[in-house]
């Protein structure tokens, strides 16, 4: 029988999380599971204190885990994330879905987590411990406690590129998505590339990152990047596409993203 527990502070709520005990944030993932009687939920934890502020902090911009997609879209601080948040769900979902929830969303969801992986964001847990997004995502299924915030570096619009490949307009789930942090206004310097739905979770394309380092952003310059763009990825067959198709078109979409044109 499902029970709901209510806490005043993040610290208390974090202590309550455990096996078969889940935290309720925006509800877009958890309530769906509750509605369908998913057997892995015994208790739902609510917290009165919901960190959702977005503010400048040491090392970048601190975004409270409770910030919704609508909060991100209302903030000029994180304008570079708007192209990502805008394509998540419809308006109602964007009023509900939180950054914290997105970090735990399974494919085909979790576009924001892909973006934060590309941007080398830091995850701040309730209690203050910080961890790089990459190791956090790799271990998220075993994670305990609560995420309190994310710190994302401040990037200019020109050095971040994002593409969500979906067949449904204006809003569909991602067959795949790609986030690229070029880092720098000229030639990419130590760039990062992350893919969504090209594996079990958000994944970096590290061979392609190395090929992109210092490359000129033209057809010739990015050819080695495209050749390596699926190295280390593990796309699967699912409802939206086959692994074969994903591998075939990933370079196409990355090429269009890097060259800047839609097609």
């Amino acid at each position: 029988m499902l029970t709901v527990e209510r806490y005043d502070t993040m610290a208390e709520a974090a202590g309550a999380i455990g096996e078969r005990v889940h935290y309720l944030a925006g509800g877009t993932l958890l309530m769906r599971a509750v509605n369908y009687g998913y057997p892995g939920i015994d208790r739902v934890v609510r917290c009165r204190e919901v960190p959702r502020e977005i503010r400048t902090d040491t090392g970048g911009i601190r975004i409270g885990a409770g910030a919704t997609m609508a909060d991100l879209l209302a903030s000029r601080e994180v304008e570079f994330l708007h192209p990502v948040a805008r394509l998540i769900g419809g308006p109602a979902i964007r009023n509900m879905a939180t950054l914290g929830g997105n970090l735990f969303a399974r494919s085909p969801y979790g576009d924001l987590a892909v973006t934060l992986l590309a941007l080398d964001a830091q995850v701040i847990r309730a209690g203050g411990a910080a961890e790089p997004m990459e190791s956090f995502l790799a271990a998220r299924d075993r994670a305990r406690g609560l995420v309190e915030a994310v710190i994302v570096p401040r990037v200019s619009a020109g050095e971040f590129r994002y593409a969500k490949v979906t067949r449904i307009k204006p809003k569909g789930v991602a067959m795949m998505c790609a986030a690229v942090w070029l880092r720098g206004a000229g030639r990419p310097s130590d760039p990062r590339i992350a893919w969504g739905n090209m594996g079990a979770g958000p994944l970096r394309a590290k061979a392609a990152e190395r090929a992109l380092n210092g490359a000129s952003l033209d057809e010739h310059g990015i050819a080695p990047v495209l050749a390596a763009c699926c190295d280390g990825l593990d796309p699967q067959d699912d409802e939206l596409a086959t692994a074969w198709y994903r591998r075939e078109v990933a370079p196409v979409h990355l090429k269009r993203l890097l060259l800047g044109g839609r097609r």
């Binding site: 309720l24 309530m31 769906r32 509605n35 739902v44 009023n95 509900m96």
Partner: peptide, 27 residues
């Protein structure tokens, strides 16, 4: 759908668009 996909349950909560199926009632 009760999955947050179809929008048939869309309501306003304090003037803000929400999906009633994904809203825990006590909130």
């Amino acid at each position: 759908c009760a999955q947050g996909n179809c929008g048939a349950c869309t309501v306003l909560i304090d003037g803000e668009l929400r999906l009633a199926c994904l809203t825990l009632a006590e909130t």
